[in-house]
Structure formats: structure tokens, C-alpha cells
Design a protein around this nucleic acid. Sequence first.
DNA 1: CGGATTCCTTGACCTGCATCAATCCGCCGC
DNA 2: GCGGCGGATTGATGCAGGTCAAGGAATCCG
Lengths: 246, 246
Amino acid sequence: MSTVVRLSEARKADLRCALCPIRDRAVCAYSGPEELKLLEVIKSYRTYQPGEEIAAMGEETAHIGSVVQGTVSLSRLMADGRRQMVGLLFPGDFVGRIMLPTAPYDAVAVDEVTLCLFERRRFERLLAESPDLRRRLLEMTLDELDAAREWMVVLGRKTAREKLASFLMILVRRAAIATGGEARDGLRIALPLTREAMADYLGLTIETVSRQIGALRRDGLITLEDARHLVVHSVAALREAAGDDA
Amino acid sequence: MSTVVRLSEARKADLRCALCPIRDRAVCAYSGPEELKLLEVIKSYRTYQPGEEIAAMGEETAHIGSVVQGTVSLSRLMADGRRQMVGLLFPGDFVGRIMLPTAPYDAVAVDEVTLCLFERRRFERLLAESPDLRRRLLEMTLDELDAAREWMVVLGRKTAREKLASFLMILVRRAAIATGGEARDGLRIALPLTREAMADYLGLTIETVSRQIGALRRDGLITLEDARHLVVHSVAALREAAGDDA
DNA sequence: CGGATTCCTTGACCTGCATCAATCCGCCGC
DNA sequence: GCGGCGGATTGATGCAGGTCAAGGAATCCG
């Protein structure tokens, strides 16, 4: 009995917004305690398995929300099977298109994903009344637009090697943020994506992805622990290889 | 004397928001008469010549505003000279990044461009108080994000021919909207961009752009009047060539 | 333990687009 | 008229990355 109580208390604690791991980055980042209370009432959590579909392009989406844990891919599929990933969402990022009833692309869980969901209609009603939510959502959308445009440069103008290095740099920056500080040499990186998903993100084939990873390894920029884990030896060299100046 | 008066009256009429040609599409689309009055006070017009720089990446931008007339390109330049266009703005579209002091990319007038400008600080203050402006801006930003992601598919996965056809389809859709109705066969299209600008938009070289236009012409999809004007014979065939289903 | 499956790597070959180079066309100033 | 110039076309050639094919490594399951 007492274990049950303790479990339910723990579950409850998980659900408290104040303790949420993405509290400072999600749509609700600017929301005060009163608004948080409102959100707490209407929110629900859902977990998706790797590869599981979160939303399908063209279909109605009843829920929208935030990535709490894991990685979500947004992609578009052409009629003949070619696929292009158009976004990669990490904890704190917002999933779902507001002001539009249907999803404009496929959303798929890359690894095990937990979402903090709101019923779309209810969230939009809340949005209409909350300057804090609106402000944060606008800010996040603008950031995503900048990121999308940055990625257009990668897709349109970079070589396969530069594409790979650019992708790794994204992971390096994320890992640096997660561990609190600067991007340091010797950083160990987990690749959340399969070779195929990377290829779809970078506009390449899996063979080219594999070969370019091999080339970066041979050139001493990285070491592969296994197919999904690597160590970055020189962040500066990797940035150089990505063709960025920033 | 009387002509001077009449001229100044005409000028004044040009400046009245109620008569603005982009009144229904710009940031101010949802603004009521009172708000329009406020905007009317702080706005100013400026005209740019073809090729003239509107904003340079990384530099502070004192003004933001709407495209009233003409076409604006947003692009990013890599250190070695490679350029990728990341957006093409038409009348009604918003120029400038709010909530950020510096421009995230270069903005250049493609042809003769007229902007309706607001001092950035003042506009942001207005934005903070106006739900109508904020709502419209969020809506426009979300639309641009969708457009950017759609373009990522073009850049990442389409062939040169499909890229050209996709670009022409954008112009066809725009021309259709401008002339009020459906995209009809036999439509005459003006190319606002040079071959170089098209190449930068599509992630190609000017030679490939030229060759692919030639190929579309030889295949009977289009006829060239001159280098900057063409007729689309079959919109359906062009869409097909673009590799789209929508 | 062995077979099946999924994911990744590697090799040989091919092709679509880039590169390099020459020419053309329309337009301007003189 | 004619040179000069920016933009566009066209041709010849090369190569980065795609395609096709085989095989390895890890995991699952009977």
C-alpha cells in the first residue's frame, strides 16, 4: 500500500510543471504560476516508441505540445519515395502547427519520445488570452525559421563532407548546451539518427553518409566508438570542415 | 499652383493605409482603423533600385516593414563566395527580424522595390500592445516557416529540372493570385530574377539553370518570349515536372 | 546454436551537374 | 556606326555523389 502511495506521489511530482526539465525552454517558459496552473490541468503526457508516428502529413491533429524527452523528426515524402527531413526537434521544441487544422509534414519519434500534450482547440483558446504564451511561441517560431533557412544553405550549397560536419556540429552544440558549458574537444556524441535518417536530413544517400563519416574518421576529426557513438577531437576543425565561419 | 496642390493630395492619398495595395495581406491586415492611424503616423516609404542592399547580414537594422511593391531576396553568403537564397519576398511580405537586433541574412532588392517602413523599436512597442499585429505576425511567420521547409525538399531532393519547374510554379501561383483567379494555361510570366539569382535560389549554377530552361522549352512546356518572359502552356504538365502532387 | 532481420560498410561503376571556355545578344555611351 | 559590357546560351570535359551489389556486425528469436 505505502509503495503505491509513494509511486503515485512520484508520478504526481513528475507532472508538476515547476519541476519540468524543459520548464525554461518550452512554450510555457514565460508563463507565470497562475498560467502554469491552467496548463497543468489540461496537459497530458504521452510516450512514443522509436519509429512511431506522431502525426501524418495532411491528417488532422487533435493535440499539440512540447518535446519533453527524445528527438522528433519532421519530414516530407515525395510521391516516388524520396524523403527530405525538414526539421529535427529536441526537448523544449514545439510539435504541431497552430492556426491550421492539419499537419503540414510527417512527425516521427526518432528514439523514445515523451511529449507534453495539449488538446489543440483548448490550447489555442488559451493562446488567445495569454500574451506570455504568444510571445514565446512567436519567438520560438522565428528561431525555427532562422534554423530552417540556415539548413537551406546546407542543402543547397554544401558538399557531402560539409553536410556531415554541419550535422555533427548541431549535435555538438546541443551536447554543449546540455552539459551546461562550452563545446569542448574530446566531447562524446550520441547519434540519435540511423544512417538513413541522416541521409534524409542531409539530402544524401546512406552510402554517402557512411563514406563521409569514414572520411572524417580517417582524417582524424572524429573517432567512432560504435556506429552510433563518436568522439569529436577538435570542434574547431569540425566547424572548419562544415564550412561555417560563425 | 493648383497642380502642386493636386500632386500633394495624390501623394497623400498614396500614403493612406486604407488605400494601400497590400492592406489585406500585410502585417496590418487585422488592424482596425484606430491602429491603422497609429501605424500611419510612424510609417515611412522608401524605394530601392534593382540590386540595392536593404540590409546586410550581421548589421543592425533600424527599420523593418512590408514589401509594398517589387521583390526582395534574402540570402546568405559563405566565406568562399557560394551564395544560397533562403527566401523571396513579394508584396505584402514582412522584411526584417523582430526580437533580434541584427539581420540574420542579406536582403537585396531584386527589381525596383518600395517598402513601408517602421522604426524597429517603435514597431516592437506597438506590437507589445496589439493582439491584432501579433496574431498576424505569428500567422505570417508560420507560413514562411512552412514555405522554407517546402523549399528544403526542393533543395535536398529534387533534380535540376524539377527545381526549375518548382520555381516556375511559384511564379505561376503568384501570378494566378495577382490576377485574381485560377492558374490558367497560356499564362504569361515575368521572371524577376537573373539566371544567377535563380541559380542561387535553386542551389544550381547559371549554366544548369539556362540548360534546364532550354529543356523545358524544347519539351514544349513553356515558350520563351525573351530571356525574362515566358508563357506556360500547361500548368498541369509543369506541376508534374516539378514532382509535386499537391 | 543457427537463421533471420536490421543496420552499416565497402567496392565498382555510372550519371547529373559543375567546371571551364567560347560565343552570342541586347543595350549603352560615344 | 562601333566598341564595351552584363547577362544568357551552348559545348566539351571532369568529378562528386548516386546506383547497384556484396558482405559484415549486432540483435532477436526459434
